[in-house]
């Protein structure tokens, strides 16, 4: 969407620009990155320890799997919660609107780490109450607390994405679909949602990427996700490469997600290309 609105870049159109040889600054900057990359490789090669790798590689993968599960489950649960919140935000009823607005402001206006602490340690204080309503079995487990906190958090962001995407579909589309005599469900499924999906795809992936990054915090409430395993490995070995491996894995997930979106976006917008 951004690209269709933007005028062509810079003073001369890109194709007319002569492909210049890199100047001094460019060579220096790229050279610096090259040097940094090479010294990282050199460091990892010098610090290579096959015992360490054999011991921690499977542990890292299980941590990675935990991170993926956590993000996937929370994303789906958050998506479900986001629907009523988004409806409430657009509702004409004061109560629904104010409640959902308060929800969105609360979860978007405070750090996730503080929300996680409040839910985990704060709720732990009210064990008797949660036991009496039968929810303690849920809040007892750090894993469920992590999912609960991440789902509530992402629901606030997803509600805004959903609202924006549906609002972006022109009114004429609703009217056109209605005049064709489509039922409300068919209308949503065949006309509105496909168009909203094109708009929402990128913000949704961005949200998944943000969740992958935010989920790294759950290590603090004893969940062994990728960063949790990393910190454990570091506290055993005091070897800095433990953090570098985690960084490489996180970058891989994020880049994979980003390229998958670009691909999906190209597919979804085939009909818009000339």
């Amino acid at each position: 969407m951004k690209n269709t609105l933007d005028p062509p870049l810079a003073a001369t159109p890109p194709d007319a620009r002569p492909r210049r040889r890199p100047g001094f600054a460019g060579m220096l900057a790229l050279g610096a990155w090259l040097l940094a990359g090479l010294s990282l490789l050199a460091y990892l090669a010098a610090a290579w320890n096959s015992d360490l790798f054999a011991r921690y590689a499977p542990i890292y993968l299980s941590g990675l799997w935990t991170t993926i599960q956590l993000v996937a489950i929370s994303f789906v649960v958050g998506a479900l919660i986001s629907v009523p919140v988004a409806l409430g935000r657009g509702s004409k009823g004061f109560v629904q609107r104010d409640l959902s607005t308060a929800y969105v402001v609360l979860f978007r206006g405070t750090p996730f780490i503080a929300q996680l602490f409040l839910i985990y340690y704060g709720f732990g204080q009210f064990r008797d109450f949660f036991e009496s309503i039968g929810l303690w079995r849920f809040f007892r487990e750090p894993w469920y607390c992590a999912i609960f906190a991440l789902a509530l958090n992402t629901a606030a962001y997803q509600a805004e994405i959903l609202r924006g995407a549906v609002a972006s579909v022109p009114k004429g589309q609703w009217e056109g679909a209605k005049s064709l005599g489509l039922s409300r469900l068919t209308m949503l499924r065949k006309v509105i949602l496909p168009q909203a999906a094109v708009v929402a795809l990128r913000p949704y992936t961005n949200e998944v990427i943000l969740m992958v990054k935010a989920s790294a915090i759950v290590a603090i409430i004893t969940v062994y996700d990728l960063l949790g395993e990393t910190r454990r490995a570091y506290s055993r070995t005091f070897d800095f490469q433990t953090y570098l491996w985690a960084a490489i894995l996180y970058l891989l997930i994020v880049e994979l997600l980003r390229h998958a979106t670009n691909f999906a976006e190209r597919r979804l917008t085939r009909h818009l290309r000339r």
Binding site: L28, A29, A32, W33, A36, Y43
Partner: peptide, 22 residues
Amino acid sequence: MTLLKTLVLAGSALAFAAGAAG
């Protein structure tokens, strides 16, 4: 500035490799 920064980063990465063996 960007340049300076990348330079510093690269330099320090080198120093890192050197320092680890120092």
